[in-house]
Design a protein around this nucleic acid. Structure first.
Lengths: 221, 221
DNA sequence: CATTATTTTTAGACCTACCTAAAAATATGT
DNA sequence: ACATATTTTTAGGTAGGTCTAAAAATAATG
C-alpha cells in the first residue's frame, strides 16, 4: 500500500507533530530524514494526493486521520520489535533502533498481533515509550523531565527523551536504567547541574542529561 | 550492499542452480520472478559487474563463490524466520513463506545469529529444508521422494518438495505432517497412486502428491 | 515598510528497476 | 542444412525517489 519511503515520511511527520502541533515545515522534515527540501516537497505532494496529509503550498503539512493511523501502526511495529530484540534476543537498548527501523516496514498484521501476544502485550518499549495497541490506543504514563523537578523530589526513571546510542551508552556507564529510584539531593545554581541519589549512590549529572531523562514522581499520599 | 531486488535475483539463481547445474537461462529466471526477460538481462549485467554471477551473452548465468555465499545467507535468514514464525508465533506452515520473503532482507548479522541461538540452532525449517549455519554449512538429511519408493518400504515424513499453501493445506487435511510414519502398502499400476499407512490409518494418495513428499527410509539393521 | 535573508517550490537531471517492441543470436524440425 | 521458431539482447521509455540550481514566496530586520 505504502512504500518504505512513504512510511518514513509519514512517521517523521507524526513525530514532529507531537512536538509542535503546528503545520510541519518542509525543512524540518528534510532535516529529520537527512534529505533535501525539494525531495520533501515532491513526496508531500504525493502523500497529499493519497489523502495522508493536508498540504497547502508554503504552509507546511499536517496528517489526516488516515495518516495518523498509518503512523501509529508503524510506531506500534517499531516498538514491539524493539521489545522483542531486548527481551528475547538480549540486545542492549542502544542497538535496537536501527534494526527496528527496518523491521517496522514488514507488512503482515497477523505477524504483529502474534508478536504482541508472544511478548505479553507490553505497554512500553525499552526506552519507556508507550506501545499502541491493536486499535491504535496507547496511554502515556505520568512522567516529567528530571530537569523540571525540584530539590527533594523523588521518583523512578521511566524513560528517555533522546534515544541515541551515545546517550544510552552514557546512561549505562552511569548505572542509570529504567526502574531505578532517583532523588534530587541538590541543584547547583551555577550550571543547573543536579546532584542526585541513584538508588544508594550519589551522582552529579549535567542539566543536559537531566533534560533527557523522564521520571515518574512518587506522590506520597 | 545489495538491494532487495538484487537479493531476489541472487536467491532465484541459487535455487535454480540446485536443480539444473547448468548455466541458468534468462527465461527461467524471468519465469520464477514473474518478470520479463529483458529486465533479467539488465539485472544480470549489473550482478555480473558486481562479481556475483558469471555471465556470457546468450549463455545463461552461474553464481560466483561470492554470489553463492550471499544466496546461502539469504536462505539462512529465510528459514530461520520461518522457524520463528511457526515455533514461537504459532503460524501454520503454509502461511510463513510470504512473511519470510520480507524478513529475509533485513540487514543485521547479529540479529540473525541471536535469532538462531534463541531458536536453539535449528537444523531444518518447518518444511524440512536444511538451515545453513553461521558459516554457510548445512547438511542435507538422507531423504527420498515417496514416489521413488517401493511397496513395503517404511519411513518418516521429513519434507516437502512443493511448499505452496495449497499443497500444505491439503496435507493438513489428510493429517500428513513432518515426523509421521509412512509405509507403502500398495502401488496401483493403473495410475501410480499409492495406498499408504499413515501412522495407523490407511490412505490413498495420487502419484503427484507422492512426488512432492520426502521420506526418510527406515533402514532396519 | 522596504530591503535582505531564509524557506519553499519548480525545473530539469540522474539512478534503479521495470516495461514494450524490435533486432540479433541460438535452437529446432524436416 | 536451411528455413522457421524460440530465446535473448538491445533500444528507448516510464515511474519512484532522489539531487542541484534557480525562481518564487514568506519571514526577518533596520
Amino acid at each position: 500500500m505504502f512504500s518504505q519511503s512513504e512510511e518514513n515520511y509519514i512517521k517523521t511527520i507524526y513525530h514532529l507533530s507531537s512536538i509542535s502541533n503546528q503545520g510541519i515545515s518542509t525543512s524540518a522534515i528534510a532535516k529529520k530524514l537527512d534529505t533535501k527540501a525539494s525531495s520533501v516537497t515532491d513526496m508531500i505532494k504525493k502523500l497529499s494526493e493519497k489523502e495522508v496529509v493536508i498540504y497547502k503550498k508554503y504552509q507546511g503539512v499536517t496528517l489526516t486521520a488516515l495518516g495518523k493511523s498509518i503512523a501509529i501502526d508503524i510506531v506500534r511495529k517499531h516498538r514491539l520489535w524493539e521489545v522483542f530484540l531486548v527481551n528475547k534476543l538480549n540486545f542492549p537498548w542502544d542497538e535496537v533502533h536501527e534494526i527496528a527501523e527496518q523491521l517496522e516496514h514488514i507488512q503482515s498484521p497477523k505477524l504483529i498481533d502474534e508478536l504482541d501476544a508472544f511478548l505479553n502485550y507490553p505497554k512500553q518499549d525499552p526506552h519507556g515509550d508507550p506501545i499502541p495497541d491493536k486499535n491504535g490506543r496507547m496511554h502515556a504514563i505520568e512522567k516529567s523531565l528530571l530537569s523540571s523537578l525540584k530539590k527533594g523530589d523523588k521518583g523512578v526513571c521511566v524513560g528517555v527523551e533522546d534515544s541515541s546510542s551515545e546517550f544510552l551508552k552514557f546512561l549505562d556507564r552511569q548505572g542509570i536504567s529504567l526502574g531505578k529510584n532517583i532523588e534530587i539531593i541538590n541543584i547547583e545554581p551555577f550550571d543547573d547541574s543536579l546532584l542526585i541519589k541513584l538508588e544508594d549512590k550519589e551522582l552529579s549529572i549535567s542539566n543536559k542529561i537531566a533534560s533527557n531523562l523522564y521520571i515518574q514522581k512518587i506522590t506520597i499520599e
